[in-house]
Simulated scan of single mutants.
Amino acid sequence: MKKLTLIVVSMLSAVLVLAACGADAGGSGNAENYPSESITYSIPFDPGGQSDVEARRQQPYLEESLGQDVMIQYKPGGGGSVGWSELIGKDPDGHFISGINIPHIILQPLANDDTGYQTEDIVPAAIFQATPIGIAVSKDSDIESLEALVNKAKESPGSITVAGSGRYSGHHIALLQLQDLAGIDMQYVPFDGAAPSIQAFLGGNAEVIFGNSSDLIKYEDDMNILAIGSEKTFKPLPDVPTFKELGYDMTPGIDRGVAVPPETNQEVIDTLETAFLDILDEEGVEDEMYNEGFEPKRMGHEESLEYIEQKTEEYSRILENVEGD
């Protein structure tokens, strides 16, 4: 009998050990010991872009605060959708995270039923940066203000060409929103990326451009920037009014953050939220962002969720208005 009892006890112990190992390997993992291995930080774009630049800045700070190696990988394709489709299928243990961009993660599912993910699948841990989008004309243009541009567009509907990066992108939605608020119609000319759109505009192939703040700063001497999409005066462009200051309730921009797979443990999300937002307190980091044309942003998990919901409602209304025309 003693021998049988020992066998049963040994079997139960083995089962419990296996169950514990299984719990740590899948699901939400062991949040108390997080992170227990290196973290893959996926960038759903090509190397060298703005998302990559920020991830490289964050990498050493994350490794120090989390105590693990942070490996940056690139998963370009579909304007980010390939990478975000991969994210939602990963184990929710916090060891695979992905950079996210707004409005991309909202507009893609709204405009296309086959993106491979839905906005609600994306679980943000934090939003840490923004690239405000501004509107500009060439230096030799007779348009000297946003009001003058709106008046000209009203006089000649559809005659003004506007360069931007992609369709159903941050630039495109900025144009749609301005047209909706101002009651005007302009002709959008999409290019395959921000750099080609800037070069086309500087080459005289479009009268107006919606551009990223980083590009507008770089080519500031070659254009007249009429408005910028920041909430308040944008530090690197102190003389440029915001859209809001000019009477248009819009803050176009590209927000960057980090997300985890669905069903990730809240403690893991909290750990990542703290790690990413604490970087903004490191000496010189915010100044570096401003110098590069970016805007520091501080949104934790809950605030990011609310922000994405707010932007989803905002963009849905704009697209409904366009489709209804």
Rank of each mutant, 00 (worst) to 15 (best):
G77C: 11
G48M: 00
D24E: 10
L66Q: 01
G79Q: 01
G49R: 00
Y61D: 02
A31C: 12
N30A: 12
L62H: 02
Y61L: 12
D69L: 11
F45C: 00
S42R: 14
A25K: 13
A31S: 15
N33Q: 13
V15C: 15
S36P: 02
Q59I: 07
L62Y: 01
L62K: 06
A31H: 08
D46G: 06
Y41I: 04
G48D: 05
P76Q: 03
V53E: 09
A25E: 08
I72Q: 05
P44D: 04
S38Q: 14
A23M: 14
L18C: 13
A19C: 12
A25T: 11
S38M: 15
G49E: 03
P60L: 06
S42M: 10
Q58M: 15
G67Y: 08
G78Q: 04
Y61T: 03
D24P: 03
G79V: 01
K75S: 12
P47Y: 07
E64C: 04
R57P: 00
P35R: 02
V53M: 13
L66T: 05
V15D: 07
D24V: 14
A20D: 10
K75V: 11
P35K: 00
I43N: 08
E54L: 08
P76T: 01
F45H: 08
I43L: 05
G29Q: 10
L16V: 15
E64A: 13
E54P: 00
K75N: 13
P60K: 09
S36A: 15
I39C: 04
E32F: 08
S38W: 00
D46R: 09
P47L: 02
R57D: 01
Q73A: 13
I43E: 05
E37A: 15
A20T: 15
Q68C: 05
A23F: 07
D24A: 15
A20P: 01
E64P: 02
G78I: 01
A20I: 09
F45I: 00
G27W: 00
I43Q: 00
S38H: 08
P44Q: 09
Y61K: 02
E63W: 09
A31V: 11
N30M: 09
D24R: 14
V15L: 15
Y34S: 01
